[in-house]
């Protein structure tokens, strides 16, 4: 069989190059990680009719359906059109009516923890927010990873993303409603940052230490603590894995509104466009930031954005992490670890 495949176009269309030259693998986006159960029928159908009957769940909450012959791509793209239209309602009619499958794959599925549809700790509806972000950033094809998590427990691992969105609750305290049981103070000290302390049988909150997790609201027996109904977010940026310098994302913004979050997401792409190293197949955004420096990155991301009054933006950035390629000559070996192995 003659197999003349435009690799770049295929990959952009959300089809993978695999070990087997005859077979590809379909990537399905699940923005916000939440599906209607009926959509599983589609995954099943594609896997059983075209693939090898299995489905892989990705770390980004998508599906990969392997073992599909390349020549079935058009047929399947047509088949998944309704699904793409459902999960990407913002996509242009041109994209949908072309029935040619996913328009881009570089900006990865926006993953989300289960959020406040279920989780008592979550400070907002993460799936809804993920869909909002999806609307803003997709179908860009730059390689960007974004995840959304309901609270600083960060179950979705927002700290491993290029941009991680973490829900913050601004706790408000009604002094007269407090019984001084210290549940919030003890809990904050044990589980969080120790932002609360007792003064004259009532609680004082140190706003510098409060991370907006909402735990005080959760444990208060009288609801003296409640959430400000306005939703706030912390953004952590440029976390990554990879073969060079894995590292956790670091805080970029705190107490910003959803509007600011989405504005920052939108601004990321012109920045990448401006500074990406086009000689590479795909350059991760984090390495671009390493090259341009934080200040340039920051200026581009905040362009045209009016910050809400509560917002705080990091003036400088220190990422942790380490570089691969360190010297292991002096490392212990089987023979040098005392009394073992």
């Amino acid at each position: 069989m003659i197999r003349d495949i435009n690799r770049k176009k295929t990959v952009k269309n959300a089809w993978r190059i695999t070990k087997n030259r005859a077979l590809t693998c379909l990537r399905i986006r699940v923005p916000g990680g939440h599906l209607e159960a009926r959509h599983l029928e589609l995954m099943k159908k594609v896997a059983e009719i075209y693939g090898n009957g299995t489905v892989h769940l990705t770390t980004r909450q998508g599906f990969e359906i392997p073992g599909i012959p390349f020549e079935k791509m058009a047929e399947i793209n047509n088949l998944i059109t309704d699904y793409i239209a459902f999960t990407g309602q913002h996509l242009s009619t041109e994209v949908i009516s072309s029935r040619e499958g996913y328009p881009a794959a570089g900006t990865r599925n926006i993953s989300a923890c289960i959020g406040n549809r279920v989780c008592p700790f979550a400070n907002f509806d993460t799936t809804k927010m993920a869909l909002e972000i999806e609307k803003t950033v997709y179908p860009n094809d730059f390689h960007v990873k974004i995840a959304v998590t309901g609270c600083p427990n960060d179950c979705i691992k927002a700290h491993m993303q290029d941009i991680g969105v973490i829900g913050q609750a601004l706790p408000e305290y009604e002094t007269q409603s407090c019984i001084g049981c210290e549940a919030c103070v003890k809990n904050c000290r044990k589980k969080v940052t120790g932002a609360l302390s007792m003064v004259d049988f009532k609680v004082e909150r140190d706003p510098r230490r409060c991370i907006g997790c909402g735990e005080c609201v959760l444990v208060c027996p009288t609801q003296a603590w409640t959430r400000n109904p306005q939703k706030f977010f912390r953004l952590v940026v440029m976390g990554r894995t990879g073969k060079k310098n894995p590292r956790l994302a670091a805080p970029f913004a705190e107490w910003v509104t959803a509007k600011v979050v989405l504005g920052i997401m939108e601004n990321l792409y012109p920045y990448i466009q401006q500074y990406i190293d086009k000689s590479l197949v795909k350059e991760h955004v984090g390495y671009i930031v390493d090259r341009t420096g934080y200040q340039v990155f920051r200026d581009w991301l905040l362009r045209g954005i009016t910050l809400n009054p509560e917002a705080r933006i990091a003036p400088t950035m220190q990422w942790s992490g380490y570089m691969y390629g360190y010297d292991t000559d002096a490392w212990d070996t089987k023979s040098t670890i005392p009394g073992s192995l």
């Binding site: 406040n116 008592p120 907002f124 509806d125 959430r227 109904p229």
Partner: peptide
């Protein structure tokens, strides 16, 4: 009803 003031986010406090 105190909108959004419930124990969990996006819930109301009835008091």
């Amino acid at each position: 009803r105190l909108k959004g003031r419930g124990r969990f986010s996006d819930t109301d406090l009835i008091k």
